[in-house]
Design a binder for these strands. Structure first.
Lengths: 196, 196, 196, 196
DNA sequence: CATGAATGAGCGTTCATTCAT
DNA sequence: AATGAATGAACGCTCATTCAT
């Protein structure tokens, strides 16, 4: 059951959309969400007018939502197998944190765009809430399994998410920092913080 | 050594600036940084035109920087005595984290504005760096004093700052959450994470 | 003698045109002429692109003219037999006015579209003039036959047309109004006004 | 008691607004409401940018409303004294109709603009209703005073308004028509139609 | 010291139309 | 016979900033 079944799209259409989405990611990553306009995206994509973008996307929101989807997918595809390879809540949490930092080096543009949109776009509370729910759920389940100690799950989830984001931004900002090391440190931090 | 020594200002001038800064804080807190324009600030301040703002501030940046200063000062004046009342790096860190959460309830507007600017304004790396330096310094000193365990100080500083900010935003967003409890949880989290 | 003899059209072509015209009428009737775009018409007609419309009609004008023709025909087919059933200029005028109001209830969409186009479309002086000529001719003939009194035929024609249109719009706007009664009143009004 | 007390305006501001309103009237009169854009108005007014218009008027609606007010005032100032000079409902109605046609020759631009706005602007049902109410009230009062015969007041009001508008449009369109004569004919028409 | 007026670039979006396929 | 893709001008509106007074 799905509210808006995805439209059938031609090959050309899909290609154009992908091209525009890619351009949008590049622009957001480089200039930030606030400075991202159709004009800039069109220029980045090599299109002659912004009308093109409006032709392929109903809205700015529509475009941004697609960017969000794309970036989320890339992130998920990167992190997800690494988490599944780990066993137990504790190890999975570590895998999540460490792989998230490696993701920054693997797909810096996508990550930067993801952060920018999550923080600034008007239509993304859903995304934020979903992410929070994911972490809170993991922590709660881990507590019940006895792998984690006692703490307020909500507070811990918020802390973890905040720490991740701040570190991602830092890594993006300082390319010379060792992402693997910082990822390990981050994982260590919350491993200690959540220990029984 | 200071590049731009502060201008001497008349009383009226200072009063006007303060009035505008206060209005700016209110607007940013209510509508977010992106939706904050001179027009809105002028309306909030009861001024008839935006020219007034441009007259007293060289730039939008100039104004924002002043807002940042003001908000930072309020925050500092709130947190600082509470930190000084505590003894030892460990206790001081706890005091910092806990009081920061109480600050959200004490001065929600200033805090909201602070976060909005830190996240969105183009000209705030100084502020971010300064804050980072403060935490890193504290952690390093605490390590040398043997109060903290071994960890990468930079990574930990980033994590703490990120966690603080995320929790502040959460508290701002959900007024019904118990700030004191969440502050304690936050402090507990990093107390455990930094333990020797 | 006809400047542009009608093109021979295939069956498919005619069907498509009719479909598009019907959609255009629906859109104009519902949203008004100003808000009627190819996009909206295409959506209403279930077409995937506006290119289709441009393919079948040389112009927006071309389409509108066809809509006008269609709506006029419907109106004519409704009013005409009722007029012919009446005897004498006076009775025919009454039949014209009364049936015109009933037409509003019988074919509201066509009527609404007709009015919208007559009032707003840039290329309809022909239509307006033709309509005026019809009324003026009727009045003049009736005068010569001694059924109508003395009055400036042109002025009276304009008055009648204006009154009809205003009342039609009123009826469209207020569906609860008794169209038959208002039609009778309208007919009475101009019966008195044109009496010898 | 007044919902929106009029803003205090400087002389310059008022002058500019008046200039823009005048330009808007000219454009609407010449090109029609639908083809009236800020760009065209700015060009007509000799302004370099549309931003100027937005600076002085909150909205397109705001501007249009002002145009409506201006045109209405001109019309009222023209018609009103002529109505008051007449005695009795019957004579007043005649004065109204006749002077309305003379108004077309005296202020063609204002009249044309008035019609265009009344017919096409989205925010003018109030105006239309008010006008209808005025006529209906006059007719009803005249009936009660025994000056008018029996007829449905609402239907008659609609007819009169429609006839006026149609004739105004005709006069605007055909400048060679004798407005005084047509005005007299219009008055005669409804004098006969409303006679007891 | 203060102001109101003006500027012009930029915003996202809609539009009728064209055209290669 | 039909289509989807593209175009580019125009739309109303907001913005930070400038400047004469």
């Amino acid at each position: 059951m799905r509210a808006n079944p995805p439209k059938r799209r031609t090959f050309t259409e899909s290609a154009r959309r992908a091209q525009i989405v890619a351009a949008a990611i590049a622009v957001i990553a480089e200039h930030g969400y606030a400075a991202t306009s159709f004009t800039r995206i069109a220029k980045q994509a090599g299109l002659s007018s912004t009308g093109m973008i409006s032709y392929h996307f109903a809205n700015k929101d529509d475009l941004i939502r697609e960017v969000l989807t794309e970036a989320t997918t890339v992130a998920y595809d990167f992190v997800s197998p690494r988490m599944e390879a780990a066993t137990g809540y504790r190890a999975k949490l570590r895998a999540r944190l460490e792989s998230n930092m490696e993701l920054v080096r693997a797909h810096p543009g996508h990550v930067r765009a993801l952060m920018e949109i999550a923080r600034n776009a008007p239509t993304t509370p859903d995304f934020v809430d979903a992410r929070f729910g994911l972490f809170a759920g993991h922590l709660r389940a881990g507590q019940e399994a006895g792998e984690f100690g006692r703490f307020n799950v909500d507070a811990m989830a918020v802390s973890i998410i905040g720490a991740i984001d701040a570190m991602v931004i830092g890594l993006v900002h300082y390319p010379e920092v060792d992402a693997t090391e910082f990822g390990r440190e981050l994982a260590d931090t919350f491993d200690r913080a959540t220990r029984p």
